[in-house]
Every structure is written in structure tokens, then in C-alpha cells.
Design a protein around this nucleic acid. Structure first.
Length: 276
DNA sequence: CTAGCTTCCTGATAGC
DNA sequence: TGCTATCAGGAAGCTA
């Protein structure tokens, strides 16, 4: 599931392949993925648009056009955004194809169809995507221990669950919350109420650190990205907590354990991640 | 305001 | 072998 580092990787790889390209044709195979406006208008607006750049906010991507309009998308669980030649085989679960003037196509493939697209005109305020409710980017200098404390210290929920709240810090999902809590030495089920100042400081430090590390270890060529169909990320083999249940902790050798926190699988080191 | 539950969707896996 | 049941999981929408 793409989280901030993966979405940023996708942006870095795809942006150069899209810039200055005109959208000459739109094919919709499953209109479910179009959240706004309705399909007919969505296609009408997109046709002929020229791409200027691509940005990321949290796990959202935005393709900006030279007239100021933009296409916002969220890949959710299984969304794949690929640029490939128009004559490549159209695989199963392809829901949307945008043909570019240069001969390539932007294709959206999504097994579970949770991902969504929004087309927003330059003069329109985005109240559709939920981006207006996002919290700080992990790299924002305003992300301090004080900020986290002010937002979370009164909450009964576990820190693992609150790291997933996009309105506090944008971009963290189930993989990177495990990684952050692992390096911060905090047990995933710890209630926010119980965290002390030193732990808030460690979190404020480790959130941007882990996100930067995620982006750097994902670094790959467009060819590698396409070969992995835009879903096999480079840093998966580097993860130290997520998916490591039953393996030895790389810091202390203790066997990593898996529990469920707020309905999400969580892996942690019983020795490194203290319960008090 | 917070918390808790449900919905979306299909491939993988477990159980019989 | 082949069937059915269960589950994962990001985020919104709903109720209490």
C-alpha cells in the first residue's frame, strides 16, 4: 500500500514523463474511480489539457495543467499509476487510461478500486478530496514535540492509531507507523495519554527521519518502476519492523511479535519498544 | 469534540 | 480437488 514515501517516489518518476504532454484521449473502464465531477464532464474537462507539473500532499497526487486546473488522485490500498507505451497490453483492473500527445499513456490500475480521481478547475476551491483537512507534512518545521503533544496528549487512543490520523500528520500508513514506533522505541498500543515528553520528542524526530529514509531507499529508475508495475517498492526488503514478525530484531535479536492495534496488524520488538 | 462501527473490493489463504 | 468463509486495509460516512 503506497504511503508518503511511495507516493513521492511515484511523483518523482512520473512527473518528468508527463510534463508538457497534452492529454489527447480519455478512456474510462470503470467510472467508480471518478469521484468528481461526473464521468462525462470529467472527460470533457481533461481532454486537451497540457500538464505543467505534479505535486504531492500527504498521500495525494496532483497533476497541474497549464491553465491552472488540476487532476487530484489518491491510490488508497492497491492503486497503481503507470506511464507506458500505448501499444502495451491493457491488463486486468485497468480503470482509466489517459493518452498523451507523445504516444505514451497514463494508466490507472487498481485491484480493489478504492482509489479516486477528482478534476478541479482553477477557480474552484477543493472541498471534495479531503486535502483541506490534512495535517502537517512530516517535513514541516512546525512538526515538533509540542505540536504532537497539543494535538494528541489528551487522547485515549493508541499512538499507532493516531499516527494514521491524516489530520495530524499527513502521509503515514500502517507500514511506516510500525517503522516509526520501532525506531522511536515505543510500544504500538501505548495510549497517547501515557506518553512522556521524551517520547513525544523522539516521535517528532523520527517521523521525518523515517519518511526521508523511505523516499531515499525507494529510489529507482523509471524502468525499474515500470517493471515492478509501480507497486514493488525498493525499500520493502529494508523494512525493520513491518512484516518482520517471527524474525529477529536487527537491534537486539529478540523475536519480533505481531499484534492487532485498532484493527491493523502491527509488528514490534518486545524488548526495544517499551510498554511503560 | 471523540469514539466506534460499517462500507468499499478482490486476491490470498485457511478450513473442510 | 474444489468449495466457502475470513481477512487485509485508507479513509469517509454514519451513529451515539
Amino acid at each position: 500500500m503506497p504511503e508518503l514515501p511511495e507516493v513521492e517516489t511515484i511523483r518523482r518518476i512520473l512527473e518528468p514523463q508527463m510534463v508538457n504532454q497534452k492529454i489527447t484521449d480519455i478512456q474510462v473502464f470503470n467510472s467508480q474511480v471518478i469521484a468528481y465531477p461526473e464521468e462525462e464532464l470529467f472527460c470533457k474537462e481533461l481532454k486537451g489539457q497540457v500538464i505543467s507539473n505534479m505535486t504531492r500532499r500527504g498521500k495525494f497526487l496532483t497533476v497541474y495543467f497549464i491553465n491552472g486546473d488540476r487532476l487530484v488522485l489518491h491510490l488508497r490500498m492497491t492503486g497503481q499509476l503507470l506511464v507506458m507505451p500505448a501499444d502495451a497490453e491493457v491488463e486486468k483492473h485497468t480503470h482509466l487510461i489517459l493518452t498523451l500527445s507523445g504516444g505514451n499513456q497514463i494508466r490507472y490500475i487498481d485491484v480493489r478500486r478504492f482509489g479516486r480521481f477528482w478534476y478541479i478547475k482553477s477557480e474552484e476551491t477543493d472541498t471534495y478530496t479531503g486535502q483541506d483537512k490534512l495535517g502537517l507534512e512530516p517535513f514541516d518545521e512546525k512538526l515538533t514535540a509540542e505540536y504532537l503533544k497539543s494535538k494528541l496528549s489528551g487522547r485515549k487512543k493508541s499512538i499507532k492509531e493516531m499516527l494514521h490520523d491524516q489530520s495530524i500528520v499527513a502521509g503515514i500508513g500502517n507500514i511506516y507507523s510500525d517503522e516509526i514506533l520501532y525506531v522511536a522505541g515505543i510500544y504500538p498500543e501505548r495510549k497517547c495519554l501515557e506518553l512522556d515528553d521524551r517520547e513525544w520528542i523522539r516521535l517528532a524526530e523520527k517521523i521525518p527521519e523515517i519518511m526521508t529514509w523511505g523516499i531515499e531507499t525507494n529510489d529507482m529508475t523509471p524502468e525499474e518502476y515500470l517493471a515492478g508495475k509501480g507497486k514493488e517498492y525498493q525499500n520493502m526488503p529494508n523494512l525493520k519492523a513491518y512484516g518482520q514478525a517471527g524474525k529477529s530484531c536487527v537491534k537486539c535479536g529478540t523475536l519480533m511479535e505481531k499484534i492487532t492495534v485498532g484493527g491493523r496488524s502491527s509488528t514490534y520488538c518486545p524488548a526495544c519498544q517499551s510498554c511503560d
